Amino acid sequence: MELRKIIQALRERVPAFGERVSGAAEFRPLPEVGKLSLPCAYVIPLHDETGEQKSQTDYWQECTDGFSVVVALDNRAGELGLESVDDAVHIVRRWLWRALLGWSPAENYTFGIEYRGGVLLDMNRAILYYKFDFQATFEIGPEDTWHQQELGSLPWLETVHIDVDLIDPGAGPDGHPEFQADIHLSPPEST
Rank of each mutant, 00 (worst) to 15 (best):
G170Q: 13
A99K: 04
L3K: 01
Q135Y: 06
W103I: 03
A126G: 08
P31E: 11
P173R: 09
Q53E: 14
T110K: 04
Y109V: 04
K35A: 11
E178Y: 05
L3D: 00
W156C: 10
P39N: 06
R94F: 15
D144P: 01
G78S: 03
A99F: 00
L128F: 06
V21I: 07
P29R: 00
R125M: 10
H176T: 12
A126K: 12
L157V: 14
T57I: 10
Q56Y: 08
S104A: 11
V33L: 03
G152F: 00
V85A: 09
D182G: 09
Y130C: 03
S68M: 09
D144I: 02
S22A: 08
T57Y: 11
D182V: 14
D74H: 04
C63G: 14
K131Q: 13
E150L: 12
V43M: 02
E189L: 14
I6N: 09
G18T: 10
G51K: 08
P45D: 03
W60M: 15
R11Q: 15
Q61H: 05
S68Q: 11
N108A: 04
R98N: 13
F138C: 12
E114I: 09
G175L: 11
R4Y: 13
D174H: 12
S186W: 12
E62F: 13
C40M: 08
K35W: 12
V92P: 03
D182P: 09
T64N: 04
L151H: 00
E189H: 04
K5C: 07
R76E: 14
M123P: 03
G112W: 11
P39C: 06
F132N: 12
T50G: 15
Y42E: 00
W146N: 14
G102S: 04
I44Q: 00
V85Y: 01
T137V: 15
D86V: 10
E62L: 13
Q135K: 11
Y42R: 01
F134V: 09
V70C: 07
S153V: 06
P155A: 07
L30F: 08
G66A: 07
E83I: 05
S190Y: 06
I7P: 00
S37Y: 13
A41N: 06
V43S: 01
